[in-house]
Design a protein around this nucleic acid. Sequence first.
DNA 1: GTCTATAGCCCGATAGAC
DNA 2: GTCTATCGGGCTATAGAC
Lengths: 217, 217
Amino acid sequence: MSTSPPRSAAKERRSDTRERLEQEILEAAKRLFAVRGYGGVSLDHIARDVGTAKQNLLYYFSSKEALYRRVLHGVLDVWLSYMAAIAENADDPEMALRKYIAGKLRFSRDHPYDSRVYANEVIAGAPLFAQEIKDRVLPALQADIAVFNRWAEAGVCRPVDAAHLMVVLWASTQAYADFASQISLVLGKPELEQQDFAAAEALLVDMVLRTVLNKPV
Amino acid sequence: MSTSPPRSAAKERRSDTRERLEQEILEAAKRLFAVRGYGGVSLDHIARDVGTAKQNLLYYFSSKEALYRRVLHGVLDVWLSYMAAIAENADDPEMALRKYIAGKLRFSRDHPYDSRVYANEVIAGAPLFAQEIKDRVLPALQADIAVFNRWAEAGVCRPVDAAHLMVVLWASTQAYADFASQISLVLGKPELEQQDFAAAEALLVDMVLRTVLNKPV
DNA sequence: GTCTATAGCCCGATAGAC
DNA sequence: GTCTATCGGGCTATAGAC
């Protein structure tokens, strides 16, 4: 028998509720921050979306800014995992690049609000996330640049400016989340469809493989 | 002698002052909307930046929204002129593409706030600019798509998905304005320099000429 | 954990003097 | 054209009852 008392079923249930409400708050905050920006959203908007009172938000999160930071962290974690996957597939450059493009585009399709919150923060000059970018994105990018350089030294790919290539890939893949409203407007459809993402993926893969691997597809 | 009275010098001067102040308001509004978003900026912020009172802004512009729309129009006008230039240089695809990329990147370097205001609007779902996009961006894109198709039919370029190619070019070139804070952070410098834009231009031109014209550079 | 109440401040827009 | 004054409302955050 353990000295620490077992958690009661009631406590479990309460804890689950707490976690679920926290998640609901984060989801609503994400959606609203994405569309209206940090300054354009009030705690009251978020609370009404969740179906609770704004004072309750400040019970779960210490401040509006803390809530916002939590949302941003969720996005960055996923994107960094995609960047890490490039190094993990370093033995197969073509697959690494294909997977990166497909993964980022898939994320843009499935989580457009995540991308937009992050875009708003960066457009604003990263006032609250600059340190996080320095501490986590910079090393992740440098690791990927090293992979590209090793490929070039081994003669399996052309020498490319890997930093700017990654910028182009970030921008192009995230555009299908951030600029989805404009893209769907000029494609003459109410919203982007699966085939639009497939076409974007085909073009991007073509462009990148031609440039990096000198490979017409 | 004309029946309409000649404008007095005083009137001219007053008119110049009015126009200059209007321009100053537009510049300040642009900078602030770019960084904080529409909802994150107050007329008082803008007025203080210009050095006047917020009531004066509402003398020159009928509302906060009208001021915002004026800012957005300025950006779109320039970008549409770059898109039109592709059709005007249709006899030389390589030059048309090179000029488009160079022009867009140059605009991102010289007018980063313009790009960011527009990005904010599109990320928000284009709540105030959707009609303008339908009326002006859509036809401009269709004209450029037609140019790409004529090139392909004439055998001077590969058949490419011109719509998505333009999306990639929009996203990549505008990223050097919209995401400048992140790019400079991961490049380890306080802000983007001329050589960063040159490197971006070289990579993008390489990628596009390889893809569209099958041309290694 | 959720509620009411409220402090202290900022918001867009208008009215009207000068 | 620029000013002061003000309306009616919204904002984040805290205090404290239950």
